[in-house]
Write a protein that binds this DNA or RNA. Sequence first.
DNA 1: TGAAATGTTGGGGCG
DNA 2: ACGCCCCAACATTTC
Length: 475
Amino acid sequence: MSSPTLVWFRRDLRLADNSALEAALRHGGPVICVYVLDETPSLRPMGGASRWWLDKSLKALAADLEARGSRLILRRGLAEAVIHDLVTETGAGLVTWNACFDPGHAERDGEIARALKGQGVAVRIFNGSYLLDPGKVVTKTGGTYGVFTPFWKAASLQVKAGHAQPAPAALPAPETWPGSETLADWGLHPTRPDWSGGMTGTPGEAGAQARLAAFVSEALSSYGAMRDIPSRPGTSGLSPHLHFGEISPRAVWRAAHASNAPEDQRAKFLSEIGWREFNLNILNTRGDVTRRNVNPAFDAFPWREDPAGLAAWQKGQTGYPIVDAGMRELWTTGIMHNRVRMIVASFLTKHLLIDWRAGEAWFWDTLTDADMASNGGNWQWVAGSGADAAPYFRIFNPIRQSETFDPEGIYIRRWVPELARLGPKDIHAPWAAPAMVRAEAGVKLGSTYPLPIIDHDMARKRALEAYQTIRKDKD
DNA sequence: TGAAATGTTGGGGCG
DNA sequence: ACGCCCCAACATTTC
């Protein structure tokens, strides 16, 4: 009987379209699937919301494997040691996995691969998380793209959609199974308190496929306009599924192309997948976007220390309804609508002049779709320090954004119920409403809902002045 | 994947 | 009838 193959699951928590799993099955012999809760100190620990999602996703993956006569082996520790131990225990002759491209991973995984090969164990590594390998798309002169549009123009030509690879019907089991820890041991689900009551989404491969199918049939054809309205389900909602690899970006690409939605709407959606690829490329060519400004001029930016402002922002108590609605949605559900992410990020970095890294860290802990490349890249995009970033002087007016994208105040009412009885005219800026109107709506500023923690006009001028101090072309 | 300031135009009220 | 002014409405420029 041939030796077993170890499939090391990482951010590819699916059975369909999984190259590492396919390679193991093609190789023949028993297949042992393992997930390692990696405690390598140099790697960034997962945030709380991500751990909640991971718990459910692993549960789903384990059930899917058990339905196919297999198991998911759970181990915790230093990945290098865990994999080494498992190879020794099982006598595996081949280890396969799909690469993770986060900072520090490539080097660490290379060391693991070298160590395995040194033991005479074969290793095969695939890319299951992105349409294209990072660094593969280069300019005519061999450089890396720093601007999204030319990047995506070149990149989308290189994408090979491939064919859907359905989940295997069964996985050959080994004679004896290695020991496994349990999900309960890991405590990924929060306790004392269990804050997860409002968390939104359906972790796992089945949930991911259902989300994709629903999005393509219900929202893709009007994506361009509806994606900006936070009170409507106009976005794909795929980000946590893609982050954990419960669905492959190739499957998303194929589904979008196969739909009969208008071409411009499909292109608009796929360009968002393109930003995911772009951000990965920036991460892999420009260093750690979660820590360092891509544009070094911002190293001298005069950020303010403002713990009270940061806390108000985190808790959704800034006095700006659209900002508070977004922050509360995030805290409750682990998700925030994309349009609102831009508004709250602009507010933190430009109105409060708080370093984008503080926002990045908060999102890292509270988002179920927290992803180093996308989160860091997008924060820097808003802050103005990123690749192909919005110019710093593009300062969102939270009132205007609110009036434009939540004109009836539906989204605000959902997340800021203390303002629910204000009408569409007054809900975007309650401090500007007539006192009578506020009284009738039961709104007492400073008591039932905060006064704005900062004045918009003053903050805008201050942000522009701060920006002047780092401008290269200044006198 | 802005907003605000500034510039331009044209209709209409009015002396 | 005419010029003047006001000011939407839209366009352009600036941050």
